[in-house]
């Protein structure tokens, strides 16, 4: 199936699968709708569940060019939309100085010279000297594109308002160049880690998707698709363990990307099964905080011995009289 022919939710689901992304029916339906209605998709969920991957996979499945904008606090219009390349303009001015002399040579008065210069204005304020940032790239792109705006909740409220303006019309007014309209309306995916409340107006504009940690069967399917050489038994054990870790009250739960990294690590180590030694050595691939690693070790050891309670290291008799 060639990319681009996504005219039904089932086709979307297959297309995503070919790109290596396992999507539920609901996700496929929402993406299909977003395409039909021309609305952006807002994907929320914990870190590491595949929101960015969704954008990439959808771009691949739809045969669109992926343009990515990573948001951070303090991101403003210049970094997101466009900038004038002053240095280039200055350079051209210097190099074209002789020609400029020629053009202005016949001018008799200062006013006339200024007028002649003004006539040449669009040499210096043209697309040539415009540094296009992701948003403008997406608007002016000649091929159909997909705009992936990552971690929109890290940007501030002013940027959200500005983004809303851009997303509603897909046209930009640059004072020197006029209004630039989109040739192909890009697909837009916004991802958010849910660390702060997004503005209502932005949410209203988008179709909403909540992507949560997957079920064991789905996670196993993902591991099989992405790391096919891993023996099935090891894969199953790995997925069970990760699911178990997520139920512990850890500071940062391992996401799907951590599971896949661990699967690849196990493959590299030629692990036949996950024994305590292998686990001990590779736990840092899954858990990124020292406290979590200790807690997981303690709990797993306790469970191996038969105790059931979840316990924080060094906390044995905390607050309990």
């Amino acid at each position: 199936m060639e990319p681009g022919n996504l005219d039904a939710p089932a086709r979307v689901k297959d297309g995503l699968r070919q790109q290596g992304y396992i999507a539920s029916d609901e996700v496929a339906t929402v993406l299909y709708l977003a395409q039909q209605l021309g609305k952006p998709v807002l994907a929320e969920g914990p870190a590491g569940v595949g929101k960015t991957e969704l954008g990439k996979a959808w771009a691949g499945a739809a045969g669109r060019n992926l343009i990515r904008l990573q948001c951070y606090e303090g991101l403003d219009e210049t970094k997101a939309l466009y900038e004038w390349e002053y240095a280039k303009q200055m350079l051209y001015t210097q190099l074209l100085r002789d020609k400029l002399q020629q053009v202005l040579a016949q001018a008799n008065s200062l006013g006339e010279a200024a007028d002649r210069l003004a006539a040449e204005e669009d040499v210096f304020f043209s697309m040539r000297f415009l540094l296009q940032r992701p948003l403008l790239q997406a608007i002016l792109s000649e091929q159909p594109s997909l705009l992936l705006i990552d971690e929109i909740d890290r940007a501030d409220a002013e940027f959200e308002a500005f983004l809303l303006e851009v997303l509603s019309d897909f046209q930009i007014s640059i004072p020197e160049l006029g209004t630039l309209r989109a040739v192909h309306q890009p697909l837009v995916v916004l991802s958010s880690n849910n660390t702060r409340e997004l503005s209502e107006a932005l949410k209203r504009r988008c179709l909403y998707l909540f992507i949560d940690y997957p079920d064991p069967q789905v996670e196993l399917e993902i591991v099989r698709l992405r790391v096919p050489e891993l023996p099935a038994a090891v894969g199953r054990q790995a997925v069970e363990l990760v699911q178990h870790l997520r139920r512990m009250d850890l500071r940062k739960n391992p996401g799907i990307s951590e599971t896949l990294d661990w699967a690849r690590a196990l493959l590299l180590l030629n692990a036949e099964a996950i024994d305590p030694d292998t686990l001990e050595n590779t736990l840092s691939v899954l858990l990124k905080h020292e406290r979590d690693v200790q807690r997981a070790r303690l709990n797993l050891a306790r469970e191996a011995r038969g105790a059931v309670q979840d316990v924080e290291p060094g906390e044995a008799t905390r607050w309990e009289h």
Binding site: D25, T29, V30, Q36
Partner: peptide
């Protein structure tokens, strides 16, 4: 309208994506 009423799962997903904006 775009999806039709035939597939109940798709219908439900469509309504949810449009109406529920907070988990």
């Amino acid at each position: 309208q775009s999806l039709g009423m035939l597939d109940r799962g798709a219908f439900r997903a469509a309504l949810r994506a449009a109406l529920v904006k907070q988990h």
